[in-house]
Design a binder for these strands. Structure first.
Length: 578
RNA sequence: GGACCUGUGGUGCAGCUCGGAGUGCACGCCGCCCUGUCAAGGCGGAGGUCGCGGGUUCAAAUCCCGUCAGGUCCGCCA
């Protein structure tokens, strides 16, 4: 029994017990999964540990109940003819002549730990220590551990060095809202928890660590979603003397290794498309390539249309296969969704054998009708949806409807990775007329667009890139600015004065004066990657102790008030409510 | 900040439209019976602030208003 499963208290995990062990007397430990009593002479006990279940036969009555922790010593015995259980990995054998030692008694648990019923999530979170005893959570968290180990191993093999960066960092008010930590020794002053190790890793580049990575916890005090927790884990990396393509190759190798570990499939080379192409074809910067329903641009065909609703800079359409059977109520709901996303309306056309069926049918010309009926190779029984508006809005609205109508569940379909490149440098203009950085202010503009920063900034592309998997944004990265002249121009475009830049990022700009190598990096969310591999649609399922959507920890009760003494030490006083 | 969904013994549901005694189902729990079960089986039993507060009504789980909690989404997430 030479294995790592054995401990001083047990010889093996129950899942290892096979017919080859018949005759051996062994000791195993675990939880009582179920018991079946047959009077005072015979009882069965299913012992559960992380490896599975094993039936123990007890001659006599049992004084254990479900979830008792027990240590059983018994003889591995082939089950009598006709009593094998093929649904159990260990179903050919059982432990007989059992000696039972109760290591810990258990009260009845507040919800069943088997997988037969779906338990309300708030109950699961309140008793998370019981929830993670369940098989699905065991599987998810163990999958996560394997993915993280694989990522570390791949990064190490690619000669990256793992360096830890501080959790107590300096406030740099920008981007995501930061969690604030009061300082006791410097009363009235604060640390913040890092929303990412962005600046720290750039300093590591200046410091000569030309390939850095970290499995890094990031903290952002923003509202929560199915794919967003306050704290999440990223594979964070940065490298010097590299191009965007080098970074994409590093990341692709690490993610592919994780994918093979998690799914058994080699994803092959990741697709690449530009941000404009993604927006045009899929109406989003994180396209889900598992299904078609690509957007079609009909602007030319409707350039001189008489239909008021289609008189717009851009007319886009999408074919919904089989969509002609959608009810009027469903179509109304889709129209409402389109309106909430900013569209003035949504036009729909059922493709029937007799032609187009639509409230607008009698207003369109035969030529327009032919174009609509042929969108994306539409056939009888399909539905064609049309949104006319500005290009970006029409695209985004149809992109959202595409997901509503076509996206498969997370657990279905192939894994389709895609790099989205050439993001715009600036997202738009804020209330004060300053440009807003799409990524962060250290992002290098696309080399071809450098001379338009001042003249036509909104057309400037950046050397920023996202990795997208099945419609989830896994992460993003960019080539960083390492030359102060370009950095000055970007700060200036963003309306950040020299003084402001100095006070906010002075230590970084200072560091760049002493020999900053060209560098670039990336970071992607491990929680999201593992969630997709696990086939679950929210990251709480792959986090041991997550928060609710309102940021509460139902198990610990956090957030909570602290003692008067703690407040005094920190010289803090809660403001009166209201 | 906003929209929508959910809240009924320990668990999962039904009951709510159309008001009439806390009504029902399954699991669990407790007791008794049972020597090959494996989601064991049989018999019996306990267990409820229908999330909370207010209103309408002769009467509210059910209708109305408010509120809390959980979820999904918008805003937010450089």
């Amino acid at each position: 029994m030479d294995n790592f499963e054995a401990t001083s208290l047990r010889d093996a995990l129950v899942g290892s017990v096979t017919e080859e062990w018949v005759g051996r007397r062994i000791t195993v430990c675990g939880w009582v999964a179920r018991r079946r009593e047959h009077g005072e002479h015979l009882a069965f006990l299913d012992l559960r540990d992380r490896s599975g279940l094993l039936q123990c036969v007890v001659e006599g009555s049992l004084d254990v109940r479900p979830e008792y922790v027990v240590r059983v010593t018994g003889t591995v015995t082939r089950r009598p003819e006709g009593t094998r259980n093929d649904r159990l990995a260990t179903g050919a054998v059982e432990l007989t002549e059992c000696d039972l030692e109760v290591l810990s008694a258990a009260e009845p648990v507040p919800f069943p730990l088997d997988e037969r019923v779906e338990v309300d999530e708030s109950t699961r979170l309140r008793y998370r220590y019981l929830d993670i005893r369940r098989e699905a959570m065991q599987r998810s968290l163990r999958l996560r551990a394997r993915v993280v180990a694989t990522l570390r191993s791949s990064m190490t093999a690619q000669e990256f060095v793992e360096v830890e960066t501080p959790l107590l960092w300096a406030p740099t008010p920008e981007g995501a809202r930061e969690f604030v930590v009061p300082s006791r020794l410097h009363s009235g002053e604060f640390y913040v928890l890092p929303q990412s190790p962005q600046i720290a890793k750039q300093l590591l580049m200046v410091g000569g660590f030309d390939r850095y990575f970290q499995v890094a916890r990031c903290l952002r005090d923003e509202d929560l979603r199915a794919d967003r927790q306050f704290e999440f884990t990223q594979l964070d990396l940065e490298a010097s003397f590299v191009t965007q393509e080098d970074i994409m190759a590093f990341v692709s190798r690490a993610v592919a290794a994780a994918a093979i570990e998690a799914t058994g499939e080699d994803p092959g080379e990741f697709a690449t498309m530009t941000w404009s192409e993604a927006l045009d074809r899929f109406g989003t910067d994180k396209p889900d390539l598992r299904f078609g329903m690509e957007l079609q641009n009909l602007s030319d065909a409707f350039a001189s249309t008489a239909v008021k609703a289609f008189q717009a800079p851009c007319v886009k359409a999408m074919r919904v296969p089989g969509g002609a059977q959608l009810s009027r109520a469903r179509l109304d709901a889709l129209t409402e969704q389109a309106r909430q996303l900013g569209a003035k309306g949504l036009a729909w056309f059922r493709v029937t054998a007799e032609g187009l069926d639509s409230p607008l049918a009698r207003f369109i010309t035969p030529e327009e009708s032919a174009v609509l009926a042929g969108v994306d190779g539409a056939e009888t029984g399909d539905l064609v949806l049309v949104v006319a508006d500005e290009f970006a809005l029409a695209s985004r609205v149809l992109g959202a409807l595409r997901l509503t109508l076509g996206a498969p569940p997370v657990s279905e379909g192939p894994y389709r990775y895609v790099w989205v490149t050439e993001f715009p440098m600036f997202e738009g203009v804020d209330d004060e007329g300053h440009l807003v950085a799409a990524h962060h202010p250290f992002t290098m503009p696309h080399p071809e667009d450098l001379d338009r920063i001042e003249t036509d900034p909104l057309s400037v592309r950046s050397a920023a890139y996202d990795l997208v998997l099945n419609g989830w944004e896994l992460g993003s990265g960019s080539v960083r600015i390492h030359r102060s002249d370009i950095q000055s121009r970007i700060f200036s475009a963003l309306g950040i004065s020299d003084e402001e830049a100095e006070s906010r990022f002075g230590f970084l700009l200072g560091a760049f004066k002493y020999g900053a190598p060209p560098h670039a990096g990336f970071a992607f969310g491990i929680d999201r990657l593992v969630a997709i591999f696990a086939g679950v649609d929210n990251i709480r399922e792959v986090i041991a102790f997550p928060k609710t959507q309102s940021g509460a920890d139902l198990m610990t009760g956090a957030p909570k008030s602290i003692t008067e003494r703690q407040l005094r030490e920190l010289r803090l006083r809660p403001a009166p409510k209201g």
